[in-house]
Structures are given as structure tokens and as C-alpha cells.
Amino acid sequence: MSLVCRRIVQNLTTINFTRQLAVTHRQLNLLFTDDHEWVKVENGVALIGISQHAADALGDIVYVELPEVGDEVEKGDDIGVIESVKSVGNIISPVSGEITEINEELADDASTINRAPYDDGWLVKVTVTDDTELEGLMDEETYAEFCAEEDN
């Protein structure tokens, strides 16, 4: 998610994310983008969400706009929007492929992303057409360092 926060929260804060990363994601095998999204690839399909760090920075998420199933997306495309009370962030596709599923539950309760960004708060599933696009994504430790650096 590119944090094009048009109004307020521009500075990401490091809220608990190092601890959570250490506890939860080691088993989950997540990869992170520098747009603060996570990717988990299974059987040629990428499950995509935003990091706890990004969810905390946005604050109370009130609305999510997702692409439609069947949409063809390119890596780097703007595929949706996440809005909190005072911020708007764009969801940037980390891979090229076809949207196979979207998290319909978020339409009723977008705050799930704040509560469980790595779990029930997932956003979309995209087929992976080019494995090399995943090269250069960060593991949890590198991502934690990346966030700390960005905050400074």
C-alpha cells in the first residue's frame, strides 16, 4: 500500500510491530513490499494484505475499495483504496496476474484490517504469472529494518 495519505498521518509509527512480526510471521512466511504490503504465495496464487505497521499508521480503517474478480492487473497498478478517518492509502499490486478472489467481508467491517491484518484482514488473491516479480521483496526482518529506517 502506498501511503499517499492526503491529509494527516504521514509519519509511520513503530507500534509493536517488531514484536508481532517476531511472534507471528516467522511461521507464516510472508514477504513484504516497500509499499507496506505483504504477500504469501501458495500454489501459484498470491494472497495480499497490508502490514500491521501500515494498518497502525492509517488508524481506524473505515472503508476499503477492492478490484473485481477477473480484473487483469500489472505489478505496480493501483488496485484499490483503504481509507481511515483522516487518511487515504492506495493498494499497489505487488504482482502481475488475474484477481481470483477479493475479501468480501471487508465491505461490512473494514476495521478487520486493523485487528487482523495478516489473517481475516487480507485483501485480494492474484495469480502469479511471473515468479521473478517476487524477487526483491523483503523478509520480516528486513522489512522491520526498512520501517525503522523510514520512521527516521
Binding site: I8, V9, T13, I15, G59, D60, S84, V85, K86
Partner: peptide
């Protein structure tokens, strides 16, 4: 200050 830790805008 925009927001304070532990207190959301709502």
C-alpha cells in the same frame, strides 16, 4: 501532534 499513541481519532 496529529494523534496520540493508544487513542484513536474516534
Amino acid at each position: 501532534p496529529m494523534i496520540y499513541k493508544g487513542v484513536s481519532i474516534p
